[in-house]
Design a protein around this nucleic acid. Sequence first.
DNA 1: CCGCGTCTCAATCAAGTGATTGATTGTCAA
DNA 2: TTGACAATCAATCACTTGATTGAGACGCGG
Lengths: 208, 208
Amino acid sequence: MTLTTAPTRRESTDERRLAIAQAARALIVEKGFEGLRTRDIAERVGINIATLHYHVPTKKALVQLVAHTIEQDFRAQEKRRPRARRSPRDRLRFEFEDQRDTMTNNPDLVIVMSELAQRARRDPAVAQVMQPLYNFWIRQLVEIVTAGRDDGSFRPDVDPMAAAQIIAGALGNLWRQLDDSPRIFDSITRELERSLLRPAIANKDTAP
Amino acid sequence: MTLTTAPTRRESTDERRLAIAQAARALIVEKGFEGLRTRDIAERVGINIATLHYHVPTKKALVQLVAHTIEQDFRAQEKRRPRARRSPRDRLRFEFEDQRDTMTNNPDLVIVMSELAQRARRDPAVAQVMQPLYNFWIRQLVEIVTAGRDDGSFRPDVDPMAAAQIIAGALGNLWRQLDDSPRIFDSITRELERSLLRPAIANKDTAP
DNA sequence: CCGCGTCTCAATCAAGTGATTGATTGTCAA
DNA sequence: TTGACAATCAATCACTTGATTGAGACGCGG
C-alpha cells in the first residue's frame, strides 16, 4: 500500500508521518472520525495541505496510517507487561490492571480504538487492521480462562470463549462511557472475577 | 401524489417526518452516520431538498428526530413484552430472548442505536435521548439480578449493578459485530447465566 | 557550482454540502 | 370564489473538503 520502500528514505518523512498520525489521533479524539479534516491535521502539524498530501497521498491512506499507529501502540503496551508464569487468576487481574492503566494514562488510545472499531464495520481496510487486534485480545482471555478452568481455580463448567467475549464486552463497554468508568471499573472487574472463580464452598484456596 | 382520505393536511407533516426518519435510518445503516447526507435522504423519500428542510429545518434537528424514532421503537418493543411475574432466571432468559429477537428481526435498530451511542459522546442532544434508554435497560437488569440474589437463585455475593453492566456490555458487544453474533449469542447468554446462578453444589449459606 | 532528489507552500480545482429564496400548487374554510 | 396556509420544487448561495498544480527551497554527492 505505502511506497515507503524507496532506496534512500529520509528520516524526515517518517517523522512527518508520525506527526501527522499523532495530530490525526488528537483530532479524532476531539471531533470524532466524521469530523476529521485534512486541513485541520495539516494546521495542527504546522504544514501545508499539499505537504500533508505529499506524505500521505489520500485520506484513505491517512486512516490506515492512524490504524497502524494505534496497532503499534497497542502491541507496544502488550509487550511492556511481563508475561510471567502466574496463576490464571493473577493473569486475569493483570489484564484488568492493564486495562485500567490504559484507560487512566492513555484514554486517547481507547477513544481512537473505539472510533476505529466503529469505522471498521464499513471500511474493510480498517477492519483488516483492527480485527487481528481484537482477536489477539480475545485469544489472550481465552487462554487465561482455559488455564483457570483446567487447574481448578475457575468454574469447571465455564465456556472459555464465551467468558472471553463477556470480559471483552464488559471492558469495551466501559471504554465507551469513559467519563464515569473509573468509578465502576473495580466493581465490574471484581464481579467478573467472582463470576469466574470456582465457588468458595467447593474451593480451598480462596481469597476475598 | 393524491392523498387518500385524509381529513386534515396536518397528518401529512407527521407522515413526511416519519418517512424522512425512516429514510435517514436506512441510510445510516448503509453508510453510517458520517455518510448521512440530506440530499440522499430527500432523494430516498422522493422529495426536494427544500421540502425536507421545510419539515426538518436543520440537520441537527434531523439527528434528534432519528434519535427520537429510535427511542419510540425501543420503548414500543419494551412495552410489547408481558412483564409477567416470573422467576428472576426466567426474566433474565426473557431479556436474552428479547435481545436475540431484536438482533434477528430488527438489526437496523441495533445498528442505528450503535451509531447513535457513538455520536452521543460528542452530541449532547443525542446523549440526552440515548442516555435514559441505556439507563432504563441497566435498571431492568439490576432489578432482575437483585431479585435473583435475594430469592437465592443467584449467587449471594453478586453485585447487581456490576452484573448488569457486564450483561449490557456483553450483549452490546455482540451488537457491534452483528455478523457472526447469532453463532455465539447462545454460548454467551448461557455463560452469563452460569456465572450468575448459584452453583448447584452449594448448600444453604447465608447471604451477606 | 551543478544537478538531482527530497520536501514545502501558495494558489486553485471540482465535487460536494447544508441551507435559503422565491415562486407554484393543492386544499379548505369563509 | 377567494384568501390563507400547508406543502412542494427549481435554482442558487456560501462554504467546505479532498486533492492537484507548478514553483520554488534545502541538502548533498560530484
